[in-house]
Amino acid sequence: MEVRTIKVFTTVDNINLHTQVVDMSMTYGQQFGPTYLDGADVTKIKPHNSHEGKTFYVLPNDDTLRVEAFEYYHTTDPSFLGRYMSALNHTKKWKYPQVNGLTSIKWADNNCYLATALLTLQQIELKFNPPALQDAYYRARAGEAANFCALILAYCNKTVGELGDVRETMSYLFQHANLDSCKRVLNVVCKTCGQQQTTLKGVEAVMYMGTLSYEQFKKGVQIPCTCGKQATKYLVQQESPFVMMSAPPAQYELKHGTFTCASEYTGNYQCGHYKHITSKETLYCIDGALLTKSSEYKGPITDVFYKENSYTTTIK
Rank of each mutant, 00 (worst) to 15 (best):
R4F: 08
T5I: 12
T5F: 10
T5G: 12
T5E: 14
V8F: 06
T11M: 05
V12E: 11
V12A: 10
D13E: 00
N14M: 02
I15H: 12
I15S: 09
N16G: 09
L17C: 15
H18A: 08
Q20G: 12
Q20P: 08
V21K: 12
V21I: 14
M24W: 14
S25R: 11
S25C: 11
M26S: 14
Y28P: 00
Y28Q: 04
Q30H: 14
Q30P: 09
Q31A: 15
F32I: 15
P34S: 10
T35S: 11
Y36I: 06
Y36M: 05
L37I: 10
L37E: 13
L37F: 13
G39R: 07
G39Y: 09
A40I: 09
D41I: 10
D41S: 11
V42I: 13
V42A: 11
V42L: 12
K44I: 15
I45C: 15
P47N: 07
P47L: 05
P47F: 03
H48L: 13
H48T: 09
S50K: 13
H51D: 14
H51E: 10
K54A: 13
T55Y: 08
Y57I: 12
Y57M: 13
V58P: 07
P60T: 06
P60R: 03
P60V: 11
P60A: 13
N61T: 13
D62S: 15
T64S: 13
R66H: 11
R66M: 15
V67Q: 14
E68Q: 09
A69M: 14
E71F: 03
E71C: 11
E71M: 09
Y73M: 01
Y73P: 07
H74Q: 08
T75I: 05
T75A: 11
T76M: 15
D77L: 06
P78I: 10
F80E: 01
F80V: 01
F80W: 04
L81E: 05
G82C: 13
R83I: 06
R83H: 00
R83G: 01
R83L: 10
R83P: 03
Y84S: 04
Y84E: 08
A87S: 08
N89T: 11
H90S: 12
T91M: 04
K92D: 08
K93L: 11
K95A: 13
Y96L: 01
P97Y: 05
Q98E: 09
Q98K: 11
Q98D: 09
V99C: 09
G101I: 03
G101M: 00
G101Q: 07
L102D: 00
L102R: 12
S104H: 06
K106T: 13
W107Q: 05
A108N: 06
A108K: 08
N110L: 13
N111L: 08
N111E: 04
C112R: 05
C112D: 00
L114Q: 04
A115K: 01
A115T: 14
T116V: 15
T116A: 15
T116I: 00
A117I: 08
L118F: 08
L118H: 02
L119D: 06
L119M: 06
L119G: 10
T120V: 09
L121S: 04
Q122A: 04
Q122T: 04
Q122Y: 03
Q123H: 02
Q123K: 03
L126S: 02
K127L: 06
F128T: 02
F128A: 03
F128Q: 04
N129E: 09
P130F: 03
P131Q: 15
P131C: 05
P131I: 01
A132I: 06
A132C: 07
Q134P: 01
Q134M: 08
D135A: 10
D135N: 12
Y137I: 09
A140H: 02
A140R: 08
E144H: 11
E144C: 09
E144D: 14
A145W: 03
A146V: 03
N147L: 05
A150G: 06
L151V: 04
I152A: 08
L153F: 03
A154L: 05
Y155L: 00
N157G: 12
N157P: 02
K158R: 09
T159L: 14
T159W: 06
T159F: 11
V160G: 02
V160E: 02
V160K: 09
V160L: 06
E162Q: 12
E162H: 08
L163V: 08
L163K: 10
G164P: 07
D165N: 01
D165R: 06
D165S: 05
D165G: 00
D165C: 10
V166L: 05
V166S: 04
E168M: 07
E168D: 01
E168Q: 11
T169V: 15
T169Y: 07
M170Q: 04
M170F: 10
Y172P: 04
L173E: 05
L173A: 01
L173H: 06
Q175A: 03
H176V: 05
H176K: 09
H176Q: 11
A177S: 08
A177P: 00
N178E: 07
L179D: 01
L179W: 02
D180K: 10
S181N: 12
C182M: 05
R184S: 15
V185D: 04
V185L: 04
L186H: 03
L186D: 02
L186G: 04
N187V: 12
N187I: 04
V188A: 10
V189Y: 07
V189A: 05
C190V: 07
K191L: 08
T192W: 04
T192R: 10
T192D: 14
C193A: 07
C193D: 08
G194T: 02
G202L: 05
V203F: 06
V203T: 06
V203R: 10
E204C: 00
E204W: 04
A205H: 07
V206C: 02
M207I: 07
Y208D: 02
Y208G: 01
M209G: 05
M209H: 15
M209C: 13
M209P: 08
G210L: 05
G210H: 04
T211P: 08
T211W: 02
L212A: 05
L212Q: 02
E215M: 02
Q216A: 13
K218D: 05
K218A: 04
K218V: 03
K219A: 13
G220S: 05
V221E: 00
V221H: 13
V221L: 14
V221F: 05
Q222I: 11
I223Y: 11
I223C: 15
I223P: 00
I223K: 04
P224Q: 15
C225K: 03
C225H: 04
T226W: 06
T226I: 10
K229L: 10
K229D: 15
K229T: 08
A231R: 06
T232R: 08
T232C: 08
K233N: 04
K233F: 05
V236R: 04
V236H: 04
Q237I: 07
Q238I: 02
Q238G: 03
Q238V: 00
E239S: 08
E239M: 08
E239F: 07
E239Q: 11
S240N: 01
S240C: 05
S240Q: 03
P241H: 07
P241D: 04
V243G: 04
M244H: 03
M245D: 02
P249E: 00
P249F: 12
Q251A: 07
Y252C: 06
Y252K: 02
L254M: 06
L254A: 07
K255H: 10
K255A: 04
H256G: 05
G257K: 00
G257H: 03
G257L: 01
G257M: 02
G257T: 05
G257N: 06
G257A: 04
T258N: 00
T258Y: 05
F259E: 00
T260Q: 15
T260M: 15
S263I: 00
E264N: 04
Y265H: 01
Y265K: 04
Y265C: 08
Y265L: 00
N268Y: 11
N268K: 09
Y269F: 15
Q270K: 09
Q270P: 00
C271D: 12
G272Q: 10
H273I: 02
H273M: 01
Y274C: 00
Y274S: 04
Y274M: 00
H276S: 00
I277W: 15
T278R: 01
S279D: 14
S279Q: 12
S279W: 00
L283Y: 05
L283C: 02
C285V: 15
C285P: 05
D287E: 09
G288H: 07
T292N: 09
T292K: 00
T292V: 10
T292S: 11
T292A: 04
S294H: 15
S294D: 02
E296Q: 13
E296G: 10
K298M: 13
G299D: 00
G299V: 01
P300F: 15
P300G: 08
I301L: 03
I301Y: 01
I301H: 00
T302S: 07
V304S: 03
F305D: 09
Y306K: 00
Y306P: 03
Y306E: 02
K307T: 13
K307N: 06
K307A: 13
K307H: 08
E308Q: 07
N309K: 08
T312P: 07
T312K: 09
T313V: 10
T313W: 09
T314N: 15
T314C: 00
K316C: 15
K316F: 15
